[in-house]
């Protein structure tokens, strides 16, 4: 168990290196420039350099800060995002913890990240941090609803909260294809809401650089700041993995119900490639958002949730329920 845990942590760190590198290369691609290419082959060691530098940087705590909470906050943020990784299935028969309430677990643990952010913003005793933390509180609490509702639509269809069963239920086709338009709506809502949930642009109001200089992490330096970056990338991976698992079948290859020969060919592609392919596709889409869209304003952000996403997902749940009862899906 300990070895598995250590391996998982090492995997997450390497994954974050890769995501950081990917983000900078994707940004460079969107911005018609080259991106890092001097450190290591094709610039691949850039993130390693950044991390080592942050490790050996002075990790100062401001004088006016609440020292205990200030130092505790980054750990809480990182721990919550790492906890969510536990029930994810990376490949066929490769799941660390197949908890029977997987979806519930994911949505409840991920909402705890707000505590760490609020703690960071409050304890910094910096007005920008405080505004950032308040924004994050409002934002995460609101968008949690839409995320939950869009996940529930699949729970209704598959009849289980367990991630492995949800994946199994997609053996004859992914939910996004089987579930008609309502599931596509859920998927879109999930992507929007989870982008907001992990504070990425266009919903990065909590760390809006042009407005709040750094938001809740304005006062953080060195390794403590690196932990916020780490948790940001883990969160990015987690929401993409969850979206891939719930809507796109996780490690399940692309199957079409009834076409056994075709399904058999698809099975030859290893399941881990299916999983990471889907996950990174979604990660790319979320990065694409970030480097394309301007940021929303706080009232627009809340309007979007409470006036559009929430009512739509509620109606959507009704549709999904009707669909499940009548057996209209494939």
């Amino acid at each position: 168990m300990v070895i598995t845990g250590v391996c998982l942590l090492a995997f997450l760190v390497v994954l974050c290196f890769f995501l950081g590198y990917m983000e900078r290369k994707v940004a460079a691609f969107m911005e018609i420039r080259l991106g890092p290419n001097r450190v290591g082959p094709k610039g691949s060691m850039q993130i390693v350099a950044d991390t080592v530098k942050l490790l050996f940087k002075e990790g100062l705590t401001p004088d006016g800060a609440d020292k205990f909470l200030f130092n505790l906050a980054p750990f809480i943020v990182v721990i919550t995002s790492m906890l969510v990784v536990a029930p994810i299935a990376y490949a066929r028969d490769f799941q660390l913890w197949d908890i029977n309430i997987g979806v519930l677990y994911v949505s409840s643990i991920s909402s705890m990240a707000v505590i760490g952010i609020l703690m960071a913003g409050w304890s910094s005793s910096n007005k920008y941090s405080l505004i950032g933390a308040m924004r994050s509180g409002a934002q995460i609490v609101s968008y949690e609803l839409s995320i939950g509702l869009s996940l529930i639509s699949i729970v209704i269809l598959s009849g289980s909260l367990q991630l492995s069963e949800i994946i199994e239920s997609q053996a004859n086709g992914w939910w996004i294809f089987k579930g008609h338009i309502p599931v596509i709506i859920s998927f879109v809502i999930f992507i929007i809401a989870s982008t907001a949930e992990i504070n990425r642009a266009p919903f990065d109001l909590t760390e809006a650089e042009q407005e709040l200089t750094g938001g809740f992490h304005t006062e953080y330096a060195g390794m403590k700041f690196a932990m916020f970056l780490l948790s940001e990338y883990i969160n990015l991976f987690v929401v993409s993995a969850i979206a891939a698992t719930i809507f796109l079948g996780g490690w399940m290859p692309f199957h079409i119900g009834g076409l056994d020969a075709f399904n058999h060919i698809m099975d030859y592609i290893p399941s881990s490639i299916w999983f990471f392919g889907k996950t990174f596709l979604i990660i790319f889409i979320i990065m694409w958002f970030r480097w394309t869209f301007p940021r929303l304003r706080i009232d627009q952000l809340l309007n979007l949730e409470w006036k559009y996403l929430l009512p739509i997902s509620m109606v959507n749940i009704l549709l999904v329920t009707a669909m499940a009862i009548m057996g209209w899906h494939f």
């Binding site: 018609i32 642009a201 042009q210 480097w291 869209f293």
Partner: peptide, 16 residues
């Protein structure tokens, strides 16, 4: 303008 509103990419297009 883009940069201030959180969209980074326009910066590079205009600077071209």
């Amino acid at each position: 303008m883009g940069l201030d509103l959180g969209a980074v990419t326009p910066f590079f297009y205009a600077f071209r």
